[in-house]
């Protein structure tokens, strides 16, 4: 099934087109999305850990919008990239490790959004648990980046 996906006309266009708009652009969009997702996470996580303490927590809710936009970009570009090499990448454990790390990072992000950044009252700061989640978020996204890069090598 993965082989049929890899052999599809769309997949063949992604990897076989001479246009810069095919693989090169899809890959670059994936990198831009990564910058949005992890960049926004860095801001949210660091604030949770106490950096920029004068910034009201609620003022950073916008960061999650940027994060979700980046995620949508990466979901779509990621689907296109995966489809184009489905049989090859689908057989590699490192791809599934990356997916697991992304899903875990998103779960942690969702919890932070609902708890710390969803609080009605800005005067109640992040809890100890929230700080642990913030560290986890940074580690999980870092891991996803490494797993993604290693897909080109192992």
């Amino acid at each position: 099934m993965l082989q049929r996906l890899q052999d599809s006309a769309f997949s063949q266009w992604v990897v076989g087109s001479d246009s810069l708009l095919a693989y090169p652009t899809i890959l670059t969009l994936h990198t831009a999305g990564l910058a949005l997702v992890v960049g926004a996470s860095v801001v949210v996580d660091l604030r949770t850990l106490g950096v920029g303490g004068a910034i009201p927590i609620s003022a950073l809710r916008r960061a999650f919008t940027i994060l979700w936009i980046g995620f949508v970009i990466n979901l779509l570009s990621g689907l296109a990239l995966f489809a184009s090499e489905a049989a090859d990448k689908g057989a590699k454990p490192v791809f599934y490790v990356k997916l697991a790390l992304v899903i875990a990072a998103l779960a942690v992000t969702s919890v932070l959004r609902r708890t710390t950044f969803g609080a009605a009252d800005d005067s109640v700061g992040p809890t100890g648990a929230a700080r642990v989640l913030a560290v986890a978020s940074l580690v999980l996204w870092g891991g996803a980046i490494v797993a993604g890069r290693l897909m080109a090598y192992i």
């Binding site: 990198t31 910058a35 960049g39 996470s41 860095v42 993604g148 290693l150 080109a152």
Partner: peptide, 18 residues
């Protein structure tokens, strides 16, 4: 080389985030 690449991606996230 791959290690530098991974660090380079992490660095750009810190840079673009901050």
């Amino acid at each position: 080389w791959p290690a530098c690449e991974s660090l380079h991606f992490m660095g750009l996230c810190l840079l673009i985030g901050g």
